Simulated scan of single mutants.
Amino acid sequence: MNCCSPPYPLHSPCRNDTTYDVLLLQDIEMTDMEPASLENLCVLYHSANYIVVNKHWDIRIDSKMWYEKQTVQSQLKLRFPDLVDPGTYYGFRFCHQLDFSTSGALCVALSKAAAGNAYRCFKDRLVTKAYLALLRGTVEKETMTLNFAIGKNIAEGKTHMMCIDGTEDCENPKPSQTELKVLEYGTYDGEPVTKVLLQPLTGRTHQLRVHCSAVGHPIVGDYTYSLGKDNSPYRMMLHAYNLRIPLPKEPIHVTAPDPFLPHIDTKWVPERLMKTLEGALEHLLDWCKEEESKPPDETSLVDEKISSPEETEEQRAQCQQWLSEWSLD
């Protein structure tokens, strides 16, 4: 049996089981560099309301293309046939998105009510997401705030890409903000790279990839934003490491183990530690809790920087999409 398929329901208390944690880490180390398969679904959290999986790095969440059989949607249907909801298009309600090339924590709601509760947390910006990445080059500043409005690239041949405000053919750029913290300096396949922790404070398409590229440090293996040049690594080095959804009755806090370790990928060679991952994450979570504890009439710095009419429209569009899907129930 796959170590990510325990013979018992993986409710939140099991996340503290030391034996299970060891088995999970061993399983990830053995399979992280292998291609995705329908059977290789790693479940990090499972309750009556939600499932959080550790999405593989080369698989789509869902697809309407008949020929695309291998998706997270298909993995879930295979593993949990009794949980498929025929009243929804995909059978499961995905609370958020991860790119095809991005791995890590992905939350799935198992009912209309659960999806609505999660949506409110996302809409109110209460959700904390932290990503790990390997970036090309040496990032000199140990802490950076990346403020680049992001829009759609409408240039011929680049309509699948996003771009920053001021770029030619950049349509409808919207305010976007990412916090970056340097963890380690080292090399990947002999070239200088920097391991960082990224916190997106907005949820734009390809936000982390565009922001890192904008400061001259694209993500290792990002074929799209290197314009096809960075094609030697086996994957794009971006991983949704930590997900915290402060649901009132069932707070979710899940970590998808770090895949960027030298004993997993020997091409990554750390040389200088600047900040431990645990310390950086603890600092991030403390900051988020402080923001949550502020009185409703106290506007946070984050809200001042990124609030805009466009953000409200985007949230409304997302809500309408969810409600449209729910109406099939």
Rank of each mutant, 00 (worst) to 15 (best):
M33Q: 13
M33R: 15
M33H: 01
E34A: 14
E34G: 00
E34D: 10
P35G: 06
P35T: 08
L38Y: 01
L38S: 06
L38D: 06
E39F: 08
N40E: 14
N40G: 09
L41V: 15
L41W: 11
L44I: 05
L44V: 02
L44W: 04
Y45H: 15
Y45G: 05
Y45P: 07
Y45D: 12
S47P: 09
A48E: 14
N49T: 06
N49W: 04
Y50C: 07
V52P: 08
V52E: 07
V52R: 02
V53D: 07
V53R: 06
V53N: 05
N54K: 03
K55F: 03
K55P: 03
W57N: 11
D58Q: 02
I59N: 04
R60E: 13
D62S: 14
D62W: 15
K64V: 10
M65D: 14
W66I: 08
W66S: 08
Y67C: 07
E68S: 04
E68C: 11
E68K: 13
K69D: 09
K69W: 05
Q70H: 12
Q70R: 12
T71P: 07
T71I: 00
V72R: 07
V72G: 04
V72C: 12
Q73R: 12
S74V: 00
S74E: 15
Q75C: 08
L76M: 11
K77F: 03
L78N: 12
L78T: 12
R79S: 10
F80G: 05
F80S: 04
P81I: 06
P81G: 09
D82P: 00
D82R: 13
D82L: 12
D82W: 05
V84Y: 12
V84H: 09
D85F: 04
D85Q: 15
D85S: 13
P86W: 09
G87H: 09
G87F: 01
G87E: 06
T88F: 06
T88C: 07
Y90D: 11
G91I: 07
G91C: 00
G91M: 03
G91K: 06
G91V: 07
G91E: 05
